[in-house]
């Protein structure tokens, strides 16, 4: 019954928003990935807190498709009243550069709140002869195109991470894309490829000895892996991680955006949530909306540079 009432309300009440009484109707968080994915789980995690704060029904809606572009377009074309919020990972940024033919423009969205930044690490097969990133880079420079690095897919963040690393360190590798990080990790474990950039979540395999962790693409070492150095420590200026963030249509009134920011901040910037996210390797440094927008812009520049150097090919 509740559902019907909510649906009725959503359909009937279509009036102009006024910032002070936002939200006046059901708010939908659009997740451009399938139910059960990481992004989806984060969205569902904060849904109750938002519902409580706003006194309105908050719905998580999955709109997967075209590498997260279906959901992103849905929000970009929605009414700019803050009732449809996009919660997404890196795809919205990378596809802007890598899939220029898609009728979607990142400029149609306004980045509001940055949940955090995942971290990546370089993992290698257990029997790989070298353990030190300096040695690996030196070897890769001498043998261009021979280091076999897997990824979870073309244009996915591990692929971009590997290309960025190669760009910074100055070597070429043989890219072997897979569909998803689990199958690619399996081939690292089996020794069919040399290594890959992976999320911190694969720490269980490091502990069980199935893979070797070489270096971390973060500012600081991770508590779960105290012995693994960062690239920076080893003199390679390379920090990278997927960005989880919330976006609204660009013409949404600033007061509404401010309220969404405040609500998300209140829901997420609590110790337990942060601890959970940190455990999964997420850097949850608090960032203002302006800082988030700056970060998005910087990522775009970085990607464009990779494209210009021919390391990534847009489709």
């Amino acid at each position: 019954m509740k559902k019907i009432v909510a649906a009725l309300a959503a359909c009937l009440v279509a009036s102009a928003v006024q910032a002070e009484d936002y939200p006046a109707e059901t708010v939908t968080i659009v997740v451009p990935y399938s139910a059960g994915g990481v992004t989806d789980s984060y969205a569902r995690m904060i849904q109750p807190a938002l519902q409580e704060r706003w006194g309105q029904t908050v719905i998580v809606e999955n709109k997967p498709g075209s590498g997260s572009m279906v959901g992103a377009m849905d929000v970009a074309r929605a009414d700019p009243d803050g009732t449809r919020i996009l919660m997404t990972a890196y795809g919205v940024i990378s596809n802007e550069v890598l899939m220029p033919d898609i009728p979607f423009d990142l400029a149609d969205l306004s980045p509001v709140y940055m949940l955090g930044r995942g971290s990546n690490m370089l993992i290698m097969r257990p029997d790989y002869p070298m353990d030190d990133i300096t040695d690996i880079v030196a070897w890769a420079k001498e043998h261009p195109g021979e280091l076999k690095l897997a990824s979870s897919g073309v244009g996915a963040s591990p692929h971009i991470a590997a290309e960025l690393l190669a760009n910074v360190a100055g070597f070429d590798f043989l890219h072997i894309p897979y569909q998803g990080s689990a199958p690619s990790r399996l081939d690292v474990i089996a020794g069919r490829v040399d290594g890959m950039m992976d999320g911190i979540s694969s720490v269980a395999y490091v502990e069980s000895g199935d893979i070797k962790a070489i270096a971390l693409a973060a500012e600081e070492r991770h508590p779960s892996l105290p012995d693994v150095p960062t690239f920076k420590e080893k003199g390679i200026d390379f920090v990278f991680g997927t960005i989880f963030g919330f976006y609204v249509p660009k013409d949404t009134p600033q007061e509404v955006q401010d309220e969404i920011f405040a609500a998300l901040d209140a829901a997420l910037h609590v110790p337990e949530t942060e601890a959970l996210l940190n455990k999964q390797g997420m850097d949850t440094t608090r960032r203002t909306q302006a800082e988030f927008q700056e970060i998005v812009a910087k990522e775009l520049d970085q990607l464009k540079e990779l494209v210009a150097k021919g390391r990534l090919t847009p489709q």
């Binding site: 998803g180 269980a204 395999y205």
Partner: peptide, 23 residues
């Protein structure tokens, strides 16, 4: 490794509940 989209969802449930699948 989820062998199918269905398994991917089940994997997601595990992860949400703090269960890290693996060896």
């Amino acid at each position: 490794i989820p062998g199918s989209p269905t398994m991917a969802i089940i994997l997601g449930v595990l992860i949400i509940h703090g269960i890290e699948p693996g060896p």
